[in-house]
Nucleic acid binder design. Structure first.
Lengths: 217, 217
DNA sequence: ATGATGCTCCAACGATCATTGGAATATTGG
DNA sequence: CCAATATTCCAATGATCGTTGGAGCATCAT
């Protein structure tokens, strides 16, 4: 009967393994990056601004928690989320954090207000507009992530190519830029650039993680 | 532009506060207990088999993450979940853990198989049966938790009173026992007892956390 | 008041964790 | 085979965390 204690402890300990994976900011950032599609270790390291060794260590822990999988491909090791549910978990924990932590809500509000205007909050209505050609949906993430998954009718211009490819965009239509999600600031920067050049640009607050497209192969 | 790094770090750090709250087995257990309704510190400590001081420390951290609220009531301090979403988070992280961690799945399978038979996996069909009086739904949690929230048509007999109150139960109907959830072993023990006495007892794998009844006041 | 109860704060210990440097391994291209 | 690249392994560092003991504070019963 008091063997129950040990069993219970074991059960909660197992769940805590997932919690432990989610208790480091860097690991969370890696998860968000992997929501965009599979990536190599040093791509991840570069995007998260950490050393390759540290990234490898963090990724190792995520793998130990079975949240990510690896596949060796030549010289590289590709990491990807083990499961679409992992992306779902990231969305849930982020939503809870935004709900509970005032600091976070304030920071996000400020980010949203800075480049003025938010965008249509809902994916489907945006796609509908894009289908009719009434808006241009612009994916400003790196080309590889666009390739792995993107919104229907979206056009890809990675942020760092944006300035040199402005001629591809129309000035008479609204342009809705999106990136990885609200914690990724690329769409915000893109809107800044476009506005300065006279485009009618908006930012979509959501990102790829939100509408589990098909980030995993 | 490289001020983005600092902003991003800050955003992920905030979310990690929630992760940190969820990275200790004991804190997770406290969350599950609080899914059952508000409780005092030493009730929580007793049920989680830890010292009052340790419970207080853990609860303090949960409060710092704004996942729980406190209310002083005379000599006691009542803790409760800040929000129904916190219970939802517990369900999600548990589901992810069960999905990803083989060890956990095996342990749960074994628990379910031990007292043989699982029960109707779905709440609504069970309630329908209970309404028609075809089964007896038995809540074996402590009386206070029953009072805070319970399934419609459920009857309350706390586990430690079960043996002395067997006469209240019919032998000609199926009895479905439930408790806090799959990590709480009270329903399993109750089924063991009932079976030995010749009752037709089943165990409902789900618990109160799953169907966010109204655990918060 | 006095003592008892319920809880929290503070300080300390050991355990665990993030991070870094150095070496080791595996693969590719010459 | 050698050099270069990509990644992991191992050991060592300092930081953080869980846990416990002791003291402090509020509340209640007497």
């Amino acid at each position: 009967m008091k063997d129950n204690r040990r069993t219970k402890d074991m059960l909660f300990e197992q769940v805590a393994r997932i919690g432990k994976a989610a208790c480091s900011p860097k690991r969370l950032e890696l998860i968000e990056l992997l929501c965009q599609g599979e990536k190599t270790v040093d791509a991840l390291a570069k995007e998260a601004s950490i050393s390759v060794k540290l990234a490898s260590a963090h990724l190792g822990q995520l793998r130990a928690a079975h949240l990510v999988e690896t596949e060796k491909q030549g010289k590289h090791v590709l990491y990807r989320l083990a499961n679409r549910d992992v992306a779902g978990f990231w969305v849930v924990i982020r939503a809870l954090a935004e709900d509970r932590l005032v600091e976070l809500r304030l920071a996000l509000d400020q980010l949203a207000r800075h480049p003025k205007e938010l965008a249509p909050h809902d994916r489907d209505s945006l796609v509908k507009l894009a289908r009719k050609g009434e808006v241009v949906v612009l994916d400003v993430r790196p080309a590889g992530e666009f390739l792995a998954a993107h919104l229907p009718f979206a056009r890809s211009i990675p942020l760092d190519e944006l300035k040199t490819r402005l001629s591809e965009l129309p000035k008479d239509k609204a342009i809705v830029a999106y990136c990885r999600g609200p914690y990724c600031l690329m769409a915000r920067d893109a809107v800044d650039i476009l506005r300065k050049k006279g485009f009618d640009a908006l930012r979509l607050a959501e990102g790829v993680a939100e509408w589990g497209l098909s980030p995993v192969r």
